[in-house]
Nucleic acid binder design. Structure first.
Lengths: 163, 163
DNA sequence: GCGCATTCCTTGGTCGGCCAATCAAATCTC
DNA sequence: GAGATTTGATTGGCCGACCAAGGAATGCGC
């Protein structure tokens, strides 16, 4: 807890909200993530994608056609979220949905050829985003951050979610 | 860079999504933040609050009546976001909005007395969230995470915001 | 005082994300 | 095989969050 006080010294963009006392790291995660998403949105805007969509596309480009349920599992999203996202991606021409011949309730999703030109741009955007995010951080710090976030992820993965 | 090639050469350990290669930390932030927000939502649900709202309430409890513009600045949110959030909080009886006598276009917001009983519960929920998030992390690790996230925040604070 | 930019807030729209409930198909059980 | 269960996907509703655009009051320059 002393460590927290130590870090309190340098405020960033705001003054210390009470949330930062009840849960300093939680607060930092929320703030950083919001800024990060915003930055992602601005980078992706030029490509006609909204933040979140690029993850779907990357999976499809990478792994080829996938069942919707697979995307849901991989992205760890709510089924309805994926459904709606895919409807929009389909309408935007980035994605095609076909019935799965092996399972008549399933839907196969694949990236359209038209979308493939976005691949490089999206990865470029993510590269820029990553660099913007990590400017001034040394390689060990980046690794450390990755490591710590992975632990957080593990902690939260089943926390209350396994109802 | 060499590490990436090394991972490509042979099979990938986990189901490493392509996003994790273009921006591993970005990907980790997104994932961790989503899980974190979800956990927050589940903790706050019992209190009748949605994630995000508790930050507004905490500011009001802490600092007393505030102008909407102040909340916008402090929470670093879009004005329209705050407007709608406050409309819902007001309708839920957690917040009251009065005209600012000193500035006829401004709105003063204050937490209702009825909402004050939530204060302790919200802070309790945030405490639990924080602990759930950081389980298994040592004090130095927590401090490190906080520190690294602060750097990320700083990096993203203006990055692309003015464009 | 007048006009113009600024500030404060609102509305409308879009999107990601969740939950709850639903339908359809596949699977398991008996 | 009939029935119950599980899985796959959808719909509707809600909320946070953004942008774009607008209206209203303030403040500044003149």
């Amino acid at each position: 807890m002393e460590a927290i006080k130590a870090a309190e010294g340098h405020h960033i963009c705001t003054e210390l909200p009470s949330a930062a006392r009840s849960g300093p790291v939680s607060h930092a995660i929320s703030r950083a993530a919001r800024l990060h998403r915003k930055a992602a949105g601005q980078l992706l805007r030029g490509l006609g994608l909204h933040p979140g969509q690029e993850l779907v596309m990357m999976h499809l480009w990478e792994r080829g056609p996938a069942r919707q349920s697979e995307l849901i599992r991989l992205l760890d999203l709510d089924p309805s979220t994926v459904t709606k996202m895919l409807q929009r991606l389909e309408q935007a021409g980035h994605v095609r949905r076909l019935p799965d011949p092996a399972d008549r309730r399933a839907v196969l999703v694949e990236a359209t050829d038209a979308s493939s030109h976005l691949l490089a741009e999206v990865e470029e955007a993510w590269g820029v985003l990553e660099e913007n995010t990590l400017t001034g951080l040394t390689a060990p710090e980046r690794r450390q951050l990755l490591d710590l976030l992975a632990k957080v992820e593990t902690n939260l993965c089943g926390s209350g979610g396994e109802g």
